[in-house]
Design a protein around this nucleic acid. Sequence first.
DNA 1: CTACAACCAGTTTTT
DNA 2: CTGGTTGTAG
Length: 788
Amino acid sequence: MDLIDDSENGANVPLSRRAMAARPSPYLDGLNAAQRAAVETLEGPVLMLAGAGTGKTRALTTRIAHLLTLGLARPGQVLAVTFTNKAAREMKNRIARLLGETVEGMPWLGTFHSISVKILRRHAELIGNGQLHLKPSFTILDTDDQIRLLKQLIQAENIDEKRWPARQLAHLIDGWKNRCLTPGNLPRGEGAAFDGHGGKLYAAYQDRLLTLNAVDFGDLLMHCVTLFQAHPDVLRQWQDRFRFILVDEYQDTNVAQYMWLRLLAQAHRNICCVGDDDQSIYGWRGAEVGNILRFEKDFPGAQVVRLEQNYRSTPEILAAASGLIASNQGRLGKTLWTDAPAGEKVRLIGHWDSEAEARWIGEEIETFQGGHRAAIGPVSLNEMAILVRASHQMRAFEDRFMTIGLPYRVIGGPRFYERQEIRDAMAYFRLAVSPEDDLAFERVVNTPKRGLGDKAVKTIQGLAREHGLTLLDAARLAVEEKHLGGKGGANLREFVSLMTGAHLSVQSGGDHIQIAERLLDESGYTAMWQNDKSPDAPGRLDNLKELVKALEEFENLQGFLEHVSLVMDRDDGENTEEVSIMTLHAAKGLEFPVVFLPGWEEGLFPNQRAMDEQGNKGLEEERRLAYVGITRAERLATISFAGNRRLYGQWQSSMPSRFVDELPEEHVEVLTPPGLYGGGYGAAMAMAGGVQMQERAAKADVYNSPGWRRMQARANERKAPVGRTPVTIDAAPATRFTVGDRVRHAKFGEGQIMGIAEDTLTVQFDTGFKTIKASYVQPLDGADDVPF
DNA sequence: CTACAACCAGTTTTT
DNA sequence: CTGGTTGTAG
């Protein structure tokens, strides 16, 4: 059984004659000794420990170029895996550059997931539960679909969705799949999760996916592993094909990926894993640092190459980062060094609150940009970045930069294909391509509104179950047998005929762009947004146009859908001059001359939740995150913290991060913030006196001072007590209001009380009368102060 | 069925 | 505060 066609084997892709010529390999020039060793140790297992900024990608791509040039493998025989599409693209480009654009394709250079899809499509029939099996045309569900499906299953089991949300179950199942635990081999204890229903729901979910001929992201890897385990012949084929394996960001692999790699590598053991244990920051999504720490045990005789010469940062930045990460236990150990000339110390500054922090950073950026800082010289905006721990920190900067007119761009956030309008449009396309895609049906049957609500959908679902039909066919039946009357019925008839027509066009190979446009127009979807008065409606229409435009690059809708589910990237910005704002996670792999690291406060960074849930493990991952942050900087890193920060609308006080204390003092310059700062809180004291003073403040004066205790107590009072009915401190009792008082409501703005009944007020707003609970309005003017 | 007031939870994020 | 979801009144 050879399902593998040879075209991708590289057989048809002749190696470049130029590359084959016995000319000394110019691409090896300029590599340092360690890089060269990493490139030239081609056979057997190799672990490349590559610190931040040590030329990891260069070594990796050069290694591939070398393999191909020496003729040890054809492009189709090299398996190179990355985590993100971005990394894969970057590698492809760089290999092409090294080899002078002559090597056509590296068909097996891609993400774990995209490579797994290619493998699974060829053996789909072998994935099943004994009764059902996948078909090669299976669809890939994203998180959204996954959750909606789980919600249905939870409802079917009559489980209280409030206490046991689908999101949580999705998280559990993801965790299991990350560890390659199928419903069949799930340990008892684990299956008892989710109020005892975990295992059962998981099994039901997997069955449901099979009937839908669908898989989720976690399945892509898990199915591959179980496929390899259950079918040695299949595994054999792939082992034979992939003569050399390379893995990027090995410290981020989870158990499933680890098993996947081991199975493929165990025959020839030509595996080269590249990673940095100090940059493992994805433990929360299943990454196992243990994989990289254990490499030498897993592959006895492995060569370990350390890339330690850093080409990115100043000695001060490296020293600060190294000093910090030294507090972590269980590292493989690396010492970054550089022969770059001395630069500036890492700067540290405390602020009164997050607004002051944002204000100060904004001013700094303007100063740098204008070149008003001799040591640095003019820095363009896209050479500067603000790296935050949590996305809610971004708001302060956005607000500030908006007011001072400083151009910025937020990296991350919802990606193009995750936006509502894109997902809706995609659902129309999906349904046209595969009429059995029930999830797509449910998504669009009443979008735009067709008067087909829950009840109508339930009726259709009932019919589908009764007759074993897809939802679309059941809908057709409902129309024919007139199960739904009135407007809804008429609209459903139209919807069914539209989708049927579209499907026929797809099948007969009609022009996919026309089909797409017709779908969106005739379904009324475009009109829905045209009639929408909300400010983001025009943007959504633009996105839809962009989506249709993106179709041009594909031959048909199927190809497009496949691409989007796995590969479609965020619509990253242009080359305009903007400061980047992003999370530390999003910053991994990037570098900027000037980096700001705000929000170094206990609770925020290190993040309280990470510590609560993962203990010391969590803390160490947070510390690695700090390490990643500092090492993004080429010339100047500035760390800051604020004594007070608005979180969920309330002010909260906090202490400077313990990471601040862990920075090696001799490489840090403590700045005094502008202005006068009153109060005796930790942050202010730290601001006044530098690291030593701040340390003392933290350890003695502040934690134990009555002022700090009082502040903590207040902060705790403000939080709702766990397990009891929340005490609503800021709910103003109705008796405190009098008819005629002016009040403010979050949504309706200011208004005047016209009537009072119990705790319910009748208020006249500009927009009209509203009846509102007293706790939802704030008193204006002379009313009593709200506590705190 | 829809609209809207009430309620509630709330890191990090790729595929 | 905010965004998403739920329950209820129209």
